[in-house]
Amino acid sequence: MFHRNKTHSTAARRLAIATAATATAVLLAAGPAAAHVEVESEKAQALAENVEISFEAESESNTAGITELRVVLPEGIAPADVTYGEGPKGWKFTANDDGYTVKGPAVKTGVNAEYSIVVRQLPDAKELAFKTLQTYSDGRTDRWIELGEGSDDHGHGNSAPVLELQAAAPGAKPVSPSPSEVETESASPTPAAEETEPSASPAAEAKKNDDGGMSAGAWIGIGAAVIVVAGAAAYLVRRRAAAQQ
């Protein structure tokens, strides 16, 4: 009996050790994958205006610091409608064709990069995804861009940061386009302007008269002179003919 109990006790200890080792391995494997970019806002509501949105890019490198965050804006937010709030010391904000970039000196190794932006107005949507490329000082880039089935609520995979929005307030409406957008539209020529040729300046008209044509008065004077000369020639011919007879 003693031998049997000892065998069972040894088997139980081995099973416990194996279970603990497996759990530890799972936790270690899940740790790095949990790192991602967080996004939040106190005014996360559709059609809200002048909304501050905060981001926190988690660091998962033990040897390099974060130096750049490249963000693709969701549909409904134009780069011209975004202004920079706060960020790591020395970082600069630059608008791109499809979003923006914030970058600067590397933050301390292992420290998360936090920054904020202000959006002129949020679109009428249920959620906004801010696809992000996170670059470190050693050149490594984490791509937090996956949507839908490629991501989940636990931060596994390379899920893009998503800001969920409340329904728009009653009576809320889209604001007019930003000034930069209006200037871009007005700068393009209208069809009427393209079809109409610009009128010549007085100097150009004068040059045209000097080079190619004469006024009506000048043509009348030349015609009169031709008539006088022709009449005088006819008179001389008749006079010579009479003298010879």
Rank of each mutant, 00 (worst) to 15 (best):
V229Y: 11
E197F: 15
G223D: 04
G217N: 13
D210N: 09
R143H: 10
V228I: 14
Q134S: 06
V226G: 02
V182M: 10
T196Y: 15
K173F: 09
E194H: 15
L133M: 02
V226E: 04
A218D: 13
G212I: 02
I227F: 04
E205K: 09
V226W: 14
P170K: 00
Q134I: 04
D153N: 09
A168R: 06
G217K: 12
L133Y: 09
S199K: 15
A187D: 06
H154Q: 05
V229T: 09
D142W: 04
Q166G: 12
R140T: 10
P161T: 02
W219K: 15
P202A: 00
H154S: 10
D211P: 05
A167T: 13
E181T: 09
T141H: 00
L133T: 08
K173P: 13
W144E: 02
E194Y: 15
P170F: 02
P170R: 00
W219T: 15
S178A: 06
S178R: 12
L165I: 04
V162E: 00
T135P: 03
A225H: 03
K173E: 14
V228Y: 06
N158A: 08
G223W: 12
A192S: 02
A230H: 01
H154W: 05
G217E: 14
G150P: 04
K173I: 11
P189M: 04
G148Q: 06
T141E: 01
I227Q: 01
E181Y: 03
A216Q: 12
I220C: 11
P170H: 04
D210V: 10
M214F: 02
S176L: 02
A160N: 07
M214G: 10
I227H: 02
D211S: 04
S188A: 13
G150K: 11
P179W: 02
T190M: 06
H156W: 09
A216P: 14
L147N: 05
S186T: 09
P179S: 04
Y136R: 10
G148I: 00
E164D: 13
N209E: 15
G213M: 08
D138L: 00
L147R: 07
S199A: 11
S178D: 14
G171A: 01
N209R: 09
E194P: 11
A169F: 07
T190C: 03
A167I: 14
P179E: 11
V182N: 13
G221C: 05
A206Y: 00
D211H: 01
E183T: 08
